[in-house]
Structures are given as structure tokens and as C-alpha cells.
Design a protein around this nucleic acid. Structure first.
Lengths: 237, 237
DNA sequence: ACAATTAATAGAATCTGTTCTACTTTTCGA
DNA sequence: TCGAAAAGTAGAACAGATTCTATTAATTGT
């Protein structure tokens, strides 16, 4: 029943109610319904104007969310601000969540760049991890409304969300000296993943006004100290 | 503005559109939460019929959610099933989330009872904690739709949600021998809290179909082993 | 018992995410 | 260059949560 139009995005969220069709979902019967057009890879690229449109949309969305939060980020408003039709917005982002995920993506990019520019300097793995996490915290808390909206939505996302995994991967890199998703043991992966989820939880509590910045730091430190103790030393197994 | 009717519940959720009202949500101390310094203090107690109405509502909600998930748990339907008017439902539960929170409360009660009846027998704190968490996992996964709906909504909740805290308290009790929120150190509290958030995250991943029961168990064990090592001040555990 | 206050009810109305329709403009291959 | 398919557009339509209105029971103080 769910007929997600013909998506432009590669990995739409689309609530998995029923059939979570792989990417290019079956188009509706009403319209042209061209055989799913194999892969948009034909032209492979988005037109420049499409890139721009997309950018404008994400920008508008972020702008709106950075004030009023998700509530202020209404699809109609976003479309209007971005200068596209509601239908177009939905073609680019099949659901509000997809839009949120896109906005989050930008934020994480920012963090990764920051880390690349100025890598954490602490000597212990947990020290470096805490450094990165608190840096991310500060970055996100600069726009609390946005952060709130983003984190929440991400946790809610039904499908593959780049957030947790990207964060865990990031921690893996900074904590384990040069570790990557490939060279890490399952346990190491689990550990950074756990730390990541602790951090997300603390962030949420902070956004709820139930934690101060200091408390978050303390708790993250406590968890990191234990989770990442002898991180690069004992492959255990 | 925002005239939340005259709520019957003590801690309504009410999205904080604009200026988050003082949100007298601060009870948390167990159920009952008398007074709260509000107007409902007049009669103090709810009539029997009100208890019943409330019960019917929560029941209907749980029943609906245990099938179709939150989606099937529509306010109109709940009201109808419970035999109350939509307005009445909203008087008892100012938002859908409040209703969800109530349903969750019942689930946690169940778990607590289960633990009381059959306390975890493992010898290490982390062993006992894992026991409890996996028991909770099995309980929740018995009704995946419900679990999904509940967990998600709780994480989304804007305000004070009994979930994380209650879970952390529970872990505190089973891990630290007879510890309570009062006798525990801040660090111990932080640690059980962290373990709780790791568990919630794994549960979510499981609901998303990205983890098997075994994987969850393994990851929870890994995290618990580190977080709760020497939990009761006994190095080398 | 009786007026005033509070709780409930039915149902309309509002708000916002999402879908649908009918049409116009772009893009692009032949 | 021509024309079909894709992409865009405007705006109506639909759905479900939440709010509002008018009216009818209950409850309670005196």
C-alpha cells in the first residue's frame, strides 16, 4: 500500500510498514511507473540543479530546526523556505525522518573534519575517546534544538542510521591507534559501540535538562575508563 | 497559554512548545507521588470509578499496541475500546506518550515482580545484571510490536521517563548486594545507568533486526563485565 | 435536598505529515 | 529538432493526534 514515489535519495528511510522496498521502490500504478528505471546510475549523477535543490532543502531544514526544533521543521515550511513544491520535497526525502537523517549527516561530517584537523591528543584510548565525545557534545549543544531533534529522530529511525555506527567507528579510530572496522576485534567493536550508546544517552539526558555538561563529562569518563581499559592491549578472544 | 486541561495524572508529558512550562514533573519517587503541589490535591485521591477508567484505558492501549504497535494504538480507538470519550482519554493522558509511559510502567512492574519471585542467582554482580537484563529482553521480545513501540516512545519522551532510572535502580539492587539509590555511590549509579543505556540500545538494534538474541547477550555481557567489575568494592572480580 | 463545581460525553474543528491529481517544464535519446 | 519519460509545481485530499465547544452526569459543600 505504501507507495513511496520514485525516490531520488539512495537510501530512503521509509517506515518499514509492510514492504520496505529496496531503494527504488515500486512506483505507483497511477503515474508513469517506468519499470523502476533500473538504477539511477544511468546518468549516475544528479544534475547540478538537483544537487542545489537538495542542498537548499537540507539547509532550510537545518535552519528551521535549529530554532524551534523538529516541531518548527514542518515539511510545508521546509518546502516553502527551500523554494520547492511539497511534492518535490517528498521526492527527495520520502519522509521527515529522511530529511533529519540528512541533516545529521552534515553534522557528523563536521565533526570528522574537526577531528582530522585537530586529532585528540590524550595518551590513553579512553582519554582520546572522551575528548572526541565531548567535542561532539559541545558542537551539538551549540544548537540544542537541532541536536535534540536530530538525536531523537535518529534513535527513532527504523532503519540503518549512520549515527551510531559512524560514531562507533570514529571512536575505534581514535581509541585504538589506527584501528578500523576491519582490523578491530568483535569485542573492540562492541566496546566502542557501547561507549557510543552511553554517550548518546547522556546527551539525551542533557537535552532533557537532567544533566549538566560536567555531569555528562564525568559519566562518559567513568564509562570510557572501564570500557576502554587496556583497549589495544588485550585482544582477549 | 497552554491550558492542559485539568490533568488527572501527576506528571503529564506535554511537549514544551515554546517555553517549556515549569513542568511540575518531578515526582518520580515511586508511584503515588502525593501532593506534587498542584490543584488535584483537593480530593487527593481518585474515585474508584476513575481508577477503573484509567485501568481500562491502559489495558485497551496495551492490547492495541501489542498487535499493530503504536500505529494501531490510535487515540480514538483506545478511547473507543476503553469505552470513554476522546476528551476523557485526553484528560487522563494529555498525550499519546503519556499513555505509552503508563503502559511501560506496567511492564516494568511485571519485571520487578518476576525478579522478586525468582532473584538472579549468578555469583558476580555483572552475572546477576546480565541475568536480569536478558530476562527483561525475553519478556519484551515476547511482544515485539509492543516492545518496539514502548522503547521508542520512551526514548522520544521529552520528559522524565521512569524507564532508564527504574532499570538502573533495578540493576543497582541486583548487582550491588542490597544497594539502593541511597546507599550507592555516584559512580555506581553512573555505572548501572550506563549498562542500562547499553542494553536499551542493543534492544533497539534487536528490534530493528540488526541483532540476534545471542548477539545482544554477548554484547551486554561484554559491557557488564567491564562496567560492573569490582562493583562492590572487591578488586579482581 | 440544592446550587456550584468538576468529570464525562459526543462530535466538530484544527494542525501537520503524507499522498494524490492534474499540469507544466526539463532532460535526453534518436 | 521532436517527443516521451522524468522532475517539478500548485494545491486538494487524507489521516491521525490534539484541541475546542456545547451539553449532560456526578460529586460535594452547606
Amino acid at each position: 500500500m505504501r507507495t513511496p514515489h520514485a525516490t531520488i535519495e539512495a537510501a530512503p528511510t521509509s517506515r518499514a510498514t509492510g514492504t520496505s522496498a529496496p531503494s527504488t521502490a515500486g512506483p505507483s500504478t497511477g503515474k508513469g511507473a517506468p519499470g523502476v528505471a533500473s538504477e539511477p546510475a544511468s546518468t549516475g549523477v544528479r544534475t547540478r540543479s538537483q544537487h542545489q535543490r537538495r542542498k537548499r532543502i537540507v539547509q532550510a531544514a537545518a535552519a528551521l530546526a535549529s530554532r524551534g526544533g523538529v516541531e518548527a521543521m514542518q515539511m510545508r515550511t521546509v518546502a516553502e523556505r527551500a523554494g520547492v513544491a511539497l511534492g518535490t520535497l517528498y521526492r527527495y526525502f520520502p519522509s521527515k525522518m529522511d530529511l533529519v537523517v540528512a541533516v545529521v549527516g552534515e553534522e557528523i561530517d563536521l565533526l570528522e573534519n574537526s577531528i582530522e584537523r585537530r586529532p585528540p591528543s590524550a595518551v590513553t584510548p579512553s582519554g582520546r575517546a572522551v575528548d572526541v565525545l565531548m567535542r561532539a557534545t559541545r558542537g551539538l549543544m551549540r544548537e540544542p534544538e537541532l541536536a535534540d531533534a536530530l538525536i531523537r529522530s535518529l534513535i527513532m529511525a527504523e532503519v540503518e542510521t549512520p549515527f551510531g555506527d559512524r560514531m562507533a567507528g570514529l571512536l575505534l579510530r581514535v581509541a585504538g591507534d589506527g584501528l578500523t572496522a576491519e582490523t578491530a576485534t568483535e569485542e573492540q567493536f562492541a566496546l566502542t559501540g557501547s561507549l557510543s550508546s552511553v554517550w548518546v544517552h547522556e546527551l539525551l539526558e542533557m537535552l532533557r535538562g537532567r544533566r549538566t555538561h560536567e555531569q555528562v563529562q564525568r559519566r562518559v569518563e567513568i564509562a570510557a575508563a572501564r570500557l576502554l581499559a587496556d583497549f589495544t592491549a588485550t585482544p582477549s578472544a
